[in-house]
């Protein structure tokens, strides 16, 4: 995992970077499996390794797959990253050992969920009970976040191609873009006018 992260920062070919970030997500999913967080691992594999890789490739096809190389390494950013990393590592010193039964997270509401969710909610998968019932508000918020993300994408770049009134700017940019592969105007004009 560390090797993947290292090469992610070193590579300049963004296509390889996207592929490697998918690999990284898959490793993360495996790590969650080891930690017995099956639902999280499932989500990480589906979203991190699957969908986001496809979306990143879609973005690459709209832009370019070469990263601009800077002449001077950005020192301020490097210092900031090291400081943040240092603080985070310092924070982990206070964390209880993995699997420690006296850790606060095992003392709070978790016990009640494990003991009572069978009679209070029902489903054998406690994660589902917590997600959809005990924490129903949170999940409603998460769904709203996904909804907002899609609406945001639609507002920013969605007003072209499949609308009755195509976005003139987007069409113009597409015509100027000369290394497009598909056969030219007849189809495009039809699309623009329909």
């Amino acid at each position: 995992m560390a090797a993947t992260a290292y090469y992610l920062t070193r590579l300049r070919n963004l296509f390889a970077v996207v592929m490697l970030s998918g690999v990284y997500s898959l490793f993360a999913a495996a790590l969650y499996m080891v930690l017995d967080a099956v639902d999280v691992a499932f989500t990480e594999a589906a979203v991190g390794a699957g969908i986001s890789t496809v979306l990143m490739l879609g973005t690459l096809s709209m832009t370019t797959d070469k990263e601009k190389v800077r002449k001077k390494p950005p020192l301020t950013a490097l210092i900031l990253v090291f400081m943040t990393g240092g603080v985070l590592v310092y924070g982990t010193f206070d964390m209880p050992r993995y699997g420690d039964p006296n850790a606060p997270i095992h003392q709070h509401v978790a016990n009640r969920f494990i003991e009572r969710s069978g009679e209070e909610v029902g489903p054998p998968n406690i994660v589902t009970s917590v997600l959809a019932s005990y924490r129903g508000y949170d999940t409603l918020g998460e769904t709203a976040v996904v909804f907002t993300a899609a609406v945001g994408v639609l507002i920013i770049i969605g007003r072209s191609k499949d609308r009755s009134m195509p976005n003139a700017k987007a069409v113009r940019r597409r015509e100027e873009d000369d290394d497009i592969t598909h056969e030219p105007s007849a189809k495009e004009k039809e699309d623009a006018s329909s």
Binding site: T143, L154, K161
Partner: peptide
């Protein structure tokens, strides 16, 4: 939740690939 998530993903994918005017969402050079 499933309805929103699946249609959000499809919508975002459609929007992204709608900007690349090729059969596949990747240009040949990429």
């Amino acid at each position: 939740v499933g309805l929103t998530v699946s249609s959000a993903m499809i919508t975002i994918f459609y929007t992204f690939s709608g900007h690349v005017n090729a059969e596949l969402p990747f240009r040949k050079g990429d």
